[in-house]
Design a protein around this nucleic acid. Structure first.
Lengths: 161, 161
DNA sequence: TATTGTTATACTCTATAACTATA
DNA sequence: TATAGTTATAGAGTATAACAATA
């Protein structure tokens, strides 16, 4: 396992070339959960294609959109990354005209982050891809199973936190 | 999203600090699937603790164990990584006495990889952690739901490949 | 003194391309 | 010529620590 139970920002897909055996992992929930998540990510990446932002950039847009005026420190906490990692990412997004940084009047050390119209447009396009992707997942899960499936996933999240 | 649909080798956990909103993603199967996989990975990492190998190393042991005598090129294909990345990883595992590399008699360019007794022992310990982890997941999923849950995950894997 | 954001530095994982030694 | 494995180099993502500006 490894990949087996690995998370994934640049997770290599776990290939299964002919003749290579994986051991008795197929019955494991954790292993199968990872394969499903990996397949879902790969399908989403294929779908967005060139429209894609890197995952970290996408996260930043989502979080700023949902929390306009957020500071970099708050954003770093929300994204689970150190604030020092946001400096180059935000510089890139600002350079591309997707994010605006204004000094907060109340505290001139910090920036208030907002999306530009272009940023909202990029986010909207990606969100449409995400919605289409989820419709595909819904079809695979099955209308009649969706509620139970989501409930089980949420029990896992809650039970392991 | 980002993280939202991100895969994960060093995926930061998607934190949800008080007051930070995430948007309307909570109903998305893909998003929830990712949260569950992430929670599962984090719990597994907590469980293994110091006994842990990095995910990539763990994968190598599993694959060699299941395919004794495999070559580095075959292993790299099975693990979904370039063969050049295996050189330092295998050097490390060999130095730690977990993996043995012998020149293949039939083709002296290649190595036949096998686990040492120590390597098998490490793998056994980690496999026990994995089994215990999966028993925890089984309990969260629920005996009566497990078959359907696994079937749904497999439909996702198959349907998106 | 404490906090916001930046910079310097480092570590991990990954990839491509050029190289060697065999085939 | 082609393949197995190595080395050199580079890029993305992350982290910690020290720093300047402001609180």
């Amino acid at each position: 396992m490894s990949q087996l139970y690995a998370e994934t920002d640049h997770a290599p897909t776990l290939a299964k070339p002919d003749g290579v055996r994986l051991g008795a992992l197929d019955e494991f929930v954790g292993f199968t959960l990872r394969l499903a998540q990996e397949a879902s990510f790969a399908a989403f990446a294929r779908r967005t294609g060139e429209a894609s932002l890197r995952p970290g950039r996408f996260a930043i847009l989502v979080l700023i959109d949902a929390n306009p005026g957020i500071s970099q420190t708050e954003l770093s906490a929300a994204a689970g990354r150190d604030k020092s990692t946001l400096t180059p990412a935000l510089a890139d997004l600002e350079r591309r005209g997707l994010v605006e940084r204004r000094r907060a009047p109340s505290d001139r050390r910090s920036y208030a982050l907002t999306l530009t119209d272009a940023g909202r447009e990029v986010l909207r396009t990606l969100s449409e891809h995400a919605a289409a992707h989820d419709r595909q997942l819904d079809a695979l899960v099955g209308e009649e199973n969706k509620a139970a499936f989501l409930a089980t996933l949420r029990r896992i999240v809650a039970g392991l936190s």
